[in-house]
């Protein structure tokens, strides 16, 4: 399949104590492993099975994903801004690929 492309919408600036919203999306077919192909055989499962969001190395939010999440998995979550730093978003594919994206945020 085409290489998965992660996209992130996170604020670049925030006030101290502000709760910011982060939206992420990655292009992925999220094949559930329950569908049958034209030849009548099951199409093997291939999904993004884990997502994590870290800020300055500290875990903010993570999801264990099951096949019931839609294709091109979208996730929206929040973080309390306390200091400036960098987000690291990580997606783990069933095939072992790991996709990451970084985004800086200035607080104050």
């Amino acid at each position: 399949m085409a290489k998965s492309k992660p996209r992130v919408k996170a604020p670049k600036k925030a006030a101290v104590g502000e709760i910011v919203t982060i939206k992420t999306l990655i292009s992925h077919k999220m094949e559930s492993g329950l569908r049958k192909g034209k030849d009548g055989n099951l199409i093997p499962r291939s999904i993004i099975n884990r997502f994590t969001a870290e800020f300055n190395g500290q875990l903010v939010f993570a999801v264990d994903i099951d096949p019931a999440i839609s294709a091109n998995p979208f996730l929206e979550f929040t973080m309390k801004a306390t200091e400036s730093g960098e987000f690291t978003f990580t997606w783990v594919d069933d095939d072992g690929s790991v996709y990451t994206k970084k985004s800086k945020m200035t607080v104050g």
């Binding site: 559930s32 875990l59 939010f61 999801v63 019931a68 979550f77 929040t78 801004a81």
Partner: peptide
Amino acid sequence: RPAVATMYFSPLSGSAEASTRMR
């Protein structure tokens, strides 16, 4: 299969709110 997802929050999250899209 009933499993959809497990979301992990932390005090850093600020609020326990999240959204996604499911089948």
